[in-house]
Design a protein around this nucleic acid. Sequence first.
DNA 1: TCGTCATGAGATATCGCTTTCAAGAAGTGA
DNA 2: TCACTTCTTGAAAGCGATATCTCATGACGA
Lengths: 339, 339
Amino acid sequence: MAEKLRSGAMPTLEMVAAQAGVSRATVSRVVNGSPKVSADVATVVQAAIDELNYVPNRAARSLVSRKTQAIAMVVPESAAKVFDDPFFAAVVQGVALYLEDTDYTLNMIIESGAASHKTRRYLLGGNVDGALVVSHHTGDHSYSELSRTLPVVFGGRPLSDVGGDNYYVDVDNFAGACTAVEHLIASGRTKLATIAGPQDMPPGVDRLSAFHATLEKHGLTSDLVEVGDFSPPSGADAMRRLLARGEPIDGIFAANDQMAIGAYSAIREAGLSVPDDIAVVGFDDDNYGSTATPPLTTVRQPSVEMGRRMAEMIVGLIENRPVDTVTTLDTELVIRDSA
Amino acid sequence: MAEKLRSGAMPTLEMVAAQAGVSRATVSRVVNGSPKVSADVATVVQAAIDELNYVPNRAARSLVSRKTQAIAMVVPESAAKVFDDPFFAAVVQGVALYLEDTDYTLNMIIESGAASHKTRRYLLGGNVDGALVVSHHTGDHSYSELSRTLPVVFGGRPLSDVGGDNYYVDVDNFAGACTAVEHLIASGRTKLATIAGPQDMPPGVDRLSAFHATLEKHGLTSDLVEVGDFSPPSGADAMRRLLARGEPIDGIFAANDQMAIGAYSAIREAGLSVPDDIAVVGFDDDNYGSTATPPLTTVRQPSVEMGRRMAEMIVGLIENRPVDTVTTLDTELVIRDSA
DNA sequence: TCGTCATGAGATATCGCTTTCAAGAAGTGA
DNA sequence: TCACTTCTTGAAAGCGATATCTCATGACGA
């Protein structure tokens, strides 16, 4: 099975040099925009480059410069999780879009459980210049240690930001959750309950404390709290438990859209309606909520922007530019029909 | 701004050779599993490799072998599309999982419109050994030409498979749609309508013709066809038009879940219920349908498997192994509550 | 007019690894 | 025991680019 259709050999620096009648060194200087090349020579070289349609060989360049021009994006979530959560696609998109204007390449790595040793080896083996680690909701930052030897930027605040020296971009979960609860209160709901996320994940913790804080600010309180695991079924279960308590409820703040959707079903099972009997507000603004009936009022999390910022940070880190340790993104309340 | 925390220099082939008391050539042979190395020498070398925790330098290897060990995945859809469609995440996942067991790297490229020239340059610039091109639904294969110079595998059948020489993996849209319609008929529905996809996209065409074929097979017919663009709103519009025709309808086959969900709202607007008045079946089985109320009966499209197969094909192609030109994946009817 | 300097451009030494090429060791048949 | 394979292993030549060092050259102050 022959191939070799690959039209001749790719042009090399050498060929460009010959074509332009200069040395390889000079061509290299032009390619890398070195200032120490006279304008006219640069013009001639550039012409040769265009004519030969020359593209520098990444491997060769990498070998000597000790830079790979590649950035890894590792998604340590379980396979099923990645598949169901629109969040990842959005972050990847943001990263890819930003990187498109640089000459870094994005290497996707989805961790299938036990392979983490292999991943570490890959990351530390000099295959990439930096790594982006994302894990929606979970504060899993088992990669923190890597940041001592490789630039690493996390998506989401580390659960235990030990040294306080981890770079990450996060959304303002607390503020976002506050606007959600404020909205519920502003629309006249007073008997509020919440379906919280796992209390060992930063977003779970922050969104719950915002719930309590906002209530308190308005002279209200509530012990109507049930915890879910951010999945739709867990939201439905939590809602059932809430309803089963027998206390009146006219508003629900779910820590994410998926659980809010789960709550919808439990509310309907109970013969109640959204938003007439119970108003519900979610968090994330993914397609679970936007296509639900009724469309979910929720707090939009700028996932794409998050990816973009992460990419910006890692590139800055790699190129030794000053970079803020943490970037916090604002959320936005999206009012639809559920509250 | 000093860095250099990168603990000493990475061990090189040279160092391993010294440690094992053999030549670089021999170490290289061991690393690449060459059969022409005596067992005992191999053992010694392997020990040295383990001890030094040696990882071959990709750039160096690439430079001489003319292989990058990298595969590009290009997603030519518009930014918004990628964000909303769970399909991509699933395919990427499948690809990444397969590649994890090989030593190929996955380079993600999301095309932001006009950058296609840059992408071509990248692909043809010898940066990757092969490319995977995905575009859900659309038969956009503007990358077909590339396959003459670089191994390329498409996700989804090309709209016009001119030379018939494009490698691709696709799902059996026709058969899948047939089972959907069969299900509707089997459950006693006889006044069927369909919300078709764009007729310039293979899945749109196949799913519609399957609708007619199945009807005919059962001695039925229907001209209740409205076309949407695979988005939820277009599904709602199509449904409204269908309802506006004033003819009785008791079953709907939507060409994808997103449009099926759109249909839900139009049906509700009309004061009708799913599935009592109108049964609806979708196609894709993404989270739009699974979390809807009522949960959507749909045709599952094996997206992750699709990614896996694409990866398998491209690796086979790169390594000159015989590979089938086209792989067609079976779908599966997932019966839930909407029909 | 001569020496001192910036400056632009060429030579050249790597970078880490694969891969002939050749040679020494070992095994074979006559 | 000699000539000839068959195996193993080492030596060395690159792969394509970057970067250090060196060398002209022309400008400029004395």
